[in-house]
Design a protein around this nucleic acid. Structure first.
Lengths: 253, 253
DNA sequence: ATATAAAAGTATACTATAATACTTTTATAT
DNA sequence: ATATAAAAGTATTATAGTATACTTTTATAT
């Protein structure tokens, strides 16, 4: 069988069945579909299904009885609590200082570095040109939630040092206060991505963990790009909540 | 060595190095760190690094020369084009019909089904109670971008059929038009997650692909929950863009 | 020319993953 | 009681992933 080789199949199957139970697709006391059927559905062998069920069995989700079937032994536990960050993407993305949640930031580095390709395109400089960069980590209750990288031309942002950012100052404030930039607009792009080993190490997560990737492009009054930020946000343990009024029909169309 | 066993390590390393090159951390013509150093950094064996480099070599990113080192042979290609969906999460999430992009939806099923645990909590019914549910797929240019599941009490939403949704009608419209609901508010939660095999099959992606998971809770004038929607959105090939005015200081604090 | 250090490459062995074909247990209809 | 069908469980075998220890090639300083 061709496997485009990510996670071992038995673990993929286990993950999927676990979610089915957690979702309530199989209820406590139910007999789940027999191995033969699961083999068929997932296009894998007997042994792969068995290993998946063995995992679930060890975790206490199911119990297999020879000749009878595999029975769900545990109801879906109540939601694993996620830390909820309020406000929509627009708000929390680079201005998380004075909110209700105690977010702490650490500046890892603040130095001239070669421009990554994606940024050099935006800031209209050559690939590898030295840019002012700053790398930060943010935590809630000690847990890392995001990794921020800011880029800018050294002429404009060069005055920002590690010490400029304490305590928990945000980037927009500093751009205005220290660099005298007339900030007018931010173009924001949000994507979902998976952590590679570099990001996994920084964010203290497993390889493959889903992340939000946010790119902010800061523009001044003349529509010139002043700075670029790249934010990598853990998406697995944090939920981003917002409340939207539907009284006005306009945008629902 | 303990591997919490996701993707094979040599592929993890390859993914990481590929991104370093694409980012411009290693430039064309550069000699990348020698295997011994990479072994050390990634805490893997010689052979694992070699397999990773063999992958990159086949893909034309690098060329290894015995006794010399491994040289980067390809500059980062220009951004792989992503389809950009404009507007922020608030807007595009369940109202994508009449936008500039030609989004087409297909109703997969519209039937009474047992409530998933997460939804039964919100709609305050027992786990497994029959709820009205509707499942939809949305495409842009033939490519699946999202999978939507709507839930509601059968007394309220039971009149909605497959045919009610054509052509490309959105859920909010139907709630108001067909069900006479006085919609007032929507509470939205956004998370990043990875596709299991069920979602992977529906969205036609690989297991592990990063997805946006959006939960919308629809409330009427009396703050009663009327309906719940679960949206699973491909996050890898689609970027969500918005432009934010920074003229007003208020929210940057 | 030659020794040396630093790089990529190879040999061997062990473990995890997974396919195919077969066996045992259980419930149930006769 | 007994045959049967349907379920989980086992044996065997092949292949992929990875670690350890070793070899060959290359550039360079003498």
């Amino acid at each position: 069988m061709i496997n485009s080789s990510v996670m071992p199949q038995y673990q993929q199957v286990a993950t999927t069945l676990r979610r089915r139970i957690a979702n309530g697709e199989y209820l406590e006391g139910d007999i789940i579909p027999p191995s033969s059927e699961l083999e068929n559905f997932f296009s894998v062998s007997n042994i792969t299904i068995r290993k998946a069920l063995a995992l679930l069995s060890n975790e206490g989700w199911v119990r297999s009885r020879r000749g009878v079937g595999t029975i769900v032994t545990r109801a879906p536990s109540s939601q694993p609590l996620k830390i909820a960050v309020s406000g929509n993407f627009t708000e929390w993305v680079d201005s998380a200082s004075g909110k209700s949640l105690p977010i702490k930031q650490t500046v890892l580095e603040c130095a001239l570095k070669p421009a990554p390709s994606r940024v050099s395109n935006i800031l209209e400089c050559a690939l590898g040109d030295a840019l002012w960069t700053m790398q930060r980590i943010r935590r809630i209750a000690g847990n890392i939630i995001s990794y921020h990288v800011n880029f800018g031309r050294p002429e404009v942002l060069g005055t920002i040092k590690k010490s400029t950012m304490v305590p928990n100052r945000n980037f927009v404030d500093v751009l205005r206060g220290e660099c005298g930039v007339n900030l007018m607009r931010m173009d924001q792009t949000v994507e979902a991505m998976a952590a590679d080993r570099d990001l996994a190490a920084l964010l203290e997560v497993e390889f493959g963990t889903p992340l939000f990737f946010v790119e902010n492009i800061y523009l001044d009054g003349a529509d010139t790009v002043v700075a670029v930020s790249h934010l990598y946000l853990r998406g697995d343990h944090y939920a981003y909540q917002t409340s939207i009024s539907l009284e006005d029909d306009a945008h629902a169309r």
